[in-house]
């Protein structure tokens, strides 16, 4: 699987080259945006790493995970991943901070690290999106949106555990 990233890059660059795109200049142009994005999200990540770090060190996180353990045990979710499961629907940048914390502590290639990365890549910040999207056009009654979106999110969490168990355990 380690060839997947070089192949994606080669494919996109070759396609661009054939289509006459100035690949080097355009790449640098995009890279500048990448730099700006990192610059912009850094304060959010720092704020969330601070809060998660403090909560973990104080024993507060263990307490929350202990309360949630009956639920996580039934669904087979590794408990290290739970902070991300809670944070992801609420805040994208917050979730990124939580994911960073999990990857650092458990290791990026550990089972928990892989499940967390999969959840992060396949679900979205639904509360935020619903608020912004409906708010922008003045919808008051959102009907079944939240319920269905939460079902999709939950399916994403349980699915990630099952798929990663099959592939990596």
């Amino acid at each position: 699987m380690s060839y997947i990233i070089p192949l994606i890059i080669l494919f996109i660059l070759t396609y661009g080259y054939i289509k006459g795109v100035k690949v080097y200049e355009v790449f640098v142009e995009g890279a500048k945006e990448g730099l700006q994005i990192t610059y912009r999200i850094f304060p959010y990540i720092a704020a969330m790493l601070l809060a998660v770090g403090m909560l973990r060190k104080s024993g507060g996180l263990d307490f929350i995970l202990y309360i949630l353990s009956p639920v996580t045990n039934i669904m087979g979710i590794p408990k290290e991943v739970m902070p991300l499961v809670i944070m992801k629907p609420l805040s994208g940048s917050g979730a990124l901070g939580v994911l960073a914390d999990i990857l650092k502590r458990e290791g990026a290639d550990s089972f928990a690290g892989i499940v967390a990365s999969t959840i992060m890549s396949s679900t979205e910040t639904i509360f935020y999106t619903i608020t912004i999207y409906f708010g922008s056009i003045g919808i008051k009654n959102i009907r079944h949106t939240l319920a269905a979106a939460l079902i999709a999110d939950l399916a994403g969490v349980i699915g990630a555990v099952i798929i990663c168990t099959i592939l990596f355990k």
Binding site: I4, I5, G113, T118, A155, I163
Partner: peptide, 20 residues
């Protein structure tokens, strides 16, 4: 974060979001 293989999650994530 020092992953030996960062891209290993692309395929599982893709399958997973299709299911979700």
């Amino acid at each position: 974060m020092g992953s030996a293989n960062p891209g290993i999650i692309i395929l599982p994530a893709l399958i997973n979001s299709m299911l979700a």
